[in-house]
C-alpha cells in the first residue's frame, strides 16, 4: 500500500472518530432521530466502528472488532469513497451513500430497517466531516 493511501486511511479513521462530537453540535439532526436506538457498524471497510445510537446521539463509537458485539446493519465504504464523499463539492457518483453502493465502493448489509427509517439522518450524520476533512499530505 502506498504512503498516500495510508495517509488517506488514517485521515478517514480520524475523521470518523470525530463524528460523535460533530453530531453533538448539530441538535436539529439529533432531534430527527429522537426515536432511534440502534447498534450499527459504520466506517471504512477495513477499519469500521461499532456505533451505539441512543435517541439520535452516538453514545459510543468503538473501533471494530469488539468481542461478540452485535449490529443490526452495516454501512462500510472504501477509504477513497469516504475521502471523495467528504469533499466540499463531491464529484458526480461520489456524492451520496447510495451512489457509492451503486458504484460498488460501499456495502450495505444486515437489517436495513433502522437505516431506511432514518435514511436522511444517516446521510447527514455520515456527511458531517465534509466541512472538516483534509487528507494528510
Amino acid at each position: 500500500m502506498s504512503s498516500a493511501s495510508n495517509a488517506t486511511d488514517a485521515a478517514v479513521i480520524k475523521a470518523f472518530a470525530a463524528i460523535p462530537a460533530l453530531l453533538e453540535q448539530a441538535p436539529a439532526l439529533i432531534v430527527r432521530a429522537r426515536f432511534l436506538d440502534c447498534e450499527c457498524l459504520l466506517g471504512p471497510t477495513g477499519h469500521p466502528f461499532h456505533a451505539s445510537i441512543r435517541s439520535g446521539r452516538i453514545v459510543e463509537l468503538a473501533p471494530a472488532p469488539v468481542l461478540m458485539r452485535s449490529w443490526r446493519f452495516a454501512y462500510r465504504a472504501s477509504p477513497a469513497a469516504w475521502a471523495a464523499y467528504w469533499q466540499s463539492e463531491p464529484r458526480p457518483g461520489w456524492h451520496d451513500l447510495l451512489a457509492l453502493t451503486k458504484r460498488g465502493e460501499a456495502m450495505l448489509e444486515g437489517d436495513l430497517h433502522p437505516f431506511m427509517t432514518h435514511l436522511q439522518y444517516f446521510k447527514d450524520v455520515l456527511a458531517l466531516p465534509r466541512d472538516h476533512f483534509a487528507v494528510a499530505s
Binding site: 447510495l98 451512489a99 436522511q120
Partner: peptide, 28 residues
C-alpha cells in the same frame, strides 16, 4: 439501485423515505 418495496410499507414513513432516497440525486 434500491428495492422499491421500502417506498410503501406501514412501518416506514413513506414521505420521509421517498424524499431521503431521491435527495442524493440532487447535485451538491
Amino acid at each position: 439501485w434500491y428495492d422499491t418495496t421500502w417506498l410503501n410499507r406501514p412501518d416506514v414513513h413513506g414521505g420521509e423515505v421517498c424524499a431521503a432516497l431521491v435527495s442524493g440525486l440532487i447535485a451538491p
